[in-house]
Simulated assay, not measured.
Amino acid sequence: MSYTIRAATGGDVAAIEALLAAAFPEPAEAMLVRRLCIDGDMVLTLVADDEETGALAGMIAFSRMAVEVDGKPVPAVALAPIATAAAHRRRGIADLLIRTGLRDLAAAGVVLCFVLGEPDFYGRHGFSVDWAKGFDSPYAGDYLMALPLQDGKMPCGVRGVAVHAKAFASLGEEA
């Protein structure tokens, strides 16, 4: 099967919500995407279309973060969520969405991308817990990872805050 990666449009909202509802046991991820959009914190949402059927096979979202290094703001985003439709799993769609998103964000001048997830999976894309160490974040720990997007160069200086968009605080709440 072949897939086309493209920027999501308003016409994709229902399909994205259905994909997230099917991919995750709780509605938190769909609510997260909705709140990020409503709050104006969504930076990039990409979808993967199955070229044969036109069906939505996957999606990825990147949202604005407030990050400082040496007391200066650094353009940064958070990757979350990413989802692949059950019928399209294990075909490299998630990898393709991540690579495309990171490439587009780097070209737009984003310096750092953070993700909260499984180190073995995201480590394949260069994310590392070590890059995130030293940032003041409520998510700091073994699963908060970062990736420098400008030729792999980490901004020099003392790592400060890494604040996710307000919508992330609601992930543990009832929808």
Rank of each mutant, 00 (worst) to 15 (best):
S2L: 11
A7T: 09
T9N: 05
T9K: 06
G10K: 15
G11S: 15
A14Q: 14
A15P: 04
A15H: 06
E17H: 14
E17T: 12
L20E: 15
A23S: 12
F24D: 05
E29T: 14
R35E: 15
D39S: 13
G40N: 08
M42P: 07
V43N: 01
L44N: 01
V47P: 02
E51L: 08
A55R: 05
A55P: 00
L56G: 01
A57F: 03
G58Y: 00
I60S: 00
I60W: 00
F62R: 00
F62Q: 00
M65E: 03
E68W: 09
P73K: 14
P73F: 15
V74P: 09
V74W: 12
P75A: 14
A76P: 07
A78K: 00
A86T: 15
A86Q: 14
R89A: 02
D95H: 12
R99H: 14
V110K: 03
L112E: 13
D120W: 03
F121G: 02
G123W: 09
R124P: 11
S128P: 04
W131Y: 15
W131P: 04
A132E: 12
K133F: 04
D136H: 07
D136I: 11
D136Y: 05
A140S: 09
G141V: 04
L144V: 06
M145R: 08
L147A: 09
P148G: 07
D151L: 12
M154P: 10
C156P: 08
V161Q: 13
H164Y: 14
H164M: 11
A165K: 03
A167P: 03
F168D: 01
F168G: 01
F168C: 06
E173C: 08
